[in-house]
C-alpha cells in the first residue's frame, strides 16, 4: 500500500474521524469535568458520537463527491421527480436501514438515561448542597470522620 492510497483512505473516511474526535470530547467531559451536569453533557456528546458512527456505517456513496444513495423509502412512495427521471425500472441504491433502527432505540435509551441521571443529580444536591464532585467527596470524608 503506497502512501498516497493510505492518505486517500484516511481522508475518505473523515466521518469516522469526526465521530472519534467527538467521542474523545465526550470522554473528556465525562472524566475531566468536576460539575455533575457537565458530566451529563459529556455523556450525551459521547452517545451522539456513537450514533453518528453507526449512521455513517449505514450511509452509501457511489461517487467521489458523495452523490448517490437515497433514504430507505419504498420507491413507489417517493414523491420526488428523481423517480420519473430514472424510470420505473431503475434500481436505487439506498442507505442501510438496519443501523437506523438500532440507533432509534439508542436515542430513546439516551433520553431515559438522561432523565434518571437528572433525578440522581437533584437528589445529590438535596443531600450535599452542591453538585461539584470534589466538594461532595470532601463532605463525605468529613461525615465519615464525624461518625
Amino acid at each position: 500500500m503506497g502512501i498516497e492510497s493510505l492518505v486517500s483512505h484516511v481522508i475518505e473516511k473523515y466521518n469516522y474521524w469526526m465521530a472519534v474526535i467527538l467521542m474523545l470530547i465526550g470522554l473528556y467531559g465525562t472524566i475531566g469535568k468536576d460539575n455533575l451536569i457537565k458530566k451529563l453533557i459529556g455523556l450525551n456528546i459521547f452517545q451522539t458520537a456513537i450514533i453518528l458512527f453507526f449512521i455513517s456505517l449505514g450511509d452509501v456513496r457511489t461517487g467521489p463527491l458523495g452523490e448517490g444513495g437515497i433514504a430507505p423509502i419504498l420507491t413507489e412512495h417517493l414523491p420526488w421527480s428523481a423517480v420519473e427521471h430514472a424510470g420505473n425500472e431503475a434500481t436505487f441504491i439506498y442507505a442501510s436501514p438496519l443501523p437506523h433502527v438500532l440507533m432509534l432505540t439508542a436515542i430513546v435509551v439516551s433520553a431515559a438515561t438522561a432523565a434518571v441521571a437528572l433525578a440522581l443529580i437533584v437528589r445529590i444536591y438535596e443531600e450535599y448542597g452542591t453538585i461539584q464532585e470534589e466538594e461532595i467527596l470532601t463532605k463525605e470524608i468529613e461525615r465519615e470522620r464525624a461518625e
Binding site: T48, G58, D59, G69, P72, A95, M103, L104, I107, S110
Partner: peptide, 15 residues
C-alpha cells in the same frame, strides 16, 4: 443529510 430522516427526526424531537 446522511439519508436517515427517521433518526434525525427523532433526535430533533427527543434530544
Amino acid at each position: 443529510q446522511m439519508h436517515s430522516p427517521d433518526v434525525g427526526f427523532t433526535e430533533a424531537a427527543v434530544g
